[in-house]
């Protein structure tokens, strides 16, 4: 095993292109568990901690550019006004220690169905910026998430940023777990009532192979909880049952609609 620590994004991209099987590591909250529990032994780990270009966020013409290295603590602290559902989701991620270290880019890279940042970003129709030898490309988050723990990132690419044009819609995030802190979502939901565009958008987590976006016109709010629950394709696993997950989504959607209508 080897660790490469680039100091710039260009260097990171070059190293990534040269070592196709390298595992990028940023906050380490996923990768380190794999290493500590002896579940994986990547040949090379690409440490992105020193790449300043990946950090923080910036506003560009009404769009927010969230660096892949943006931590959950930063989301909580800085984005409560502009992306409230994301900030709420960040508060539910692990513990303060995890929020200090874990990043948006990590959530995208792992592409877990339970990734807490994913539903709020889906609801805000985020786009993912990827960089590789051929240059930059962006694609909608919906297209980026292709399967359980699978994403559209090419072997020689890095996740650089997430672009969001904040909708200003009332929105919220909720996460169900059998404990009142530090849980992996049994089911989660982000929902926005976008009056400007006349639609409701919801995205669920932990209730299908990937977090998924569901839309409906504003006037179809009554049937929306059922619609979200039916869109999901949950499974039974060690954390919960499929039946419970579907039920929970129905309850969460109804509550979220009420919250965002108020």
């Amino acid at each position: 095993m080897d660790v490469l620590t680039p100091r710039t994004l260009d260097e990171a991209l070059r190293l990534r292109a040269e070592t196709a099987d390298a595992w990028p590591i940023q906050g380490g909250t996923d990768v380190m568990v794999e290493l500590n529990f002896d579940r994986a032994r990547p040949r090379v780990v690409l440490n992105l901690n020193e790449v300043a270009e990946l950090r923080g966020f910036a506003r560009e013409n009404g769009t927010l550019r969230l660096g892949a290295g943006l931590t959950y603590t930063e989301c909580r602290r800085e984005l409560g006004e502009t992306l409230p559902a994301l900030a709420e989701a960040a508060r539910t991620v692990g513990s303060p220690q995890i929020q200090n270290r874990g990043t948006i880019g990590g959530n995208l890279g792992t592409a877990s169905p339970a990734g807490d940042a994913l539903p709020p970003l889906l609801v805000e129709e985020a786009e993912v910026e990827l960089a590789g030898p051929a240059g930059r490309r962006t694609l909608p988050l919906e297209e980026f998430l292709v399967g359980p723990k699978q994403n559209a990132l090419a072997e020689d690419e890095l996740i650089v940023a997430v672009h969001v044009r904040p909708s200003g819609a009332r929105q919220t995030f909720m996460k169900v777990g059998p404990r009142n802190a530090m849980v992996i979502a049994v089911a989660s939901l982000a929902l926005a009532v976008d009056r400007e565009r006349g639609e409701i958008r919801a995205a669920y987590g932990s209730a299908g192979p990937v977090p998924r976006l569901v839309r409906a016109p504003l006037d179809e709010a009554d049937g929306f909880p059922d619609r979200v629950a039916e869109a999901a394709s949950p499974i039974d696993d060690v954390r919960g049952t499929a039946a419970y997950r579907r039920h929970a989504l129905r309850v969460l959607t109804a509550r979220a609609l009420e919250r965002c209508a108020a």
Binding site: V33, N36, V45, S95, P96
Partner: peptide
């Protein structure tokens, strides 16, 4: 626990509270 679930290894890294088990030594 060595998976960031218990906080027993909490340290300050550049002044930020983190779980030392989730930081690669090289980082």
């Amino acid at each position: 626990c060595e998976q960031g679930e218990c906080g027993s290894c909490s340290v300050l890294l550049d002044g930020t509270l983190v779980c030392a088990c989730l930081v690669l030594a090289a980082q």
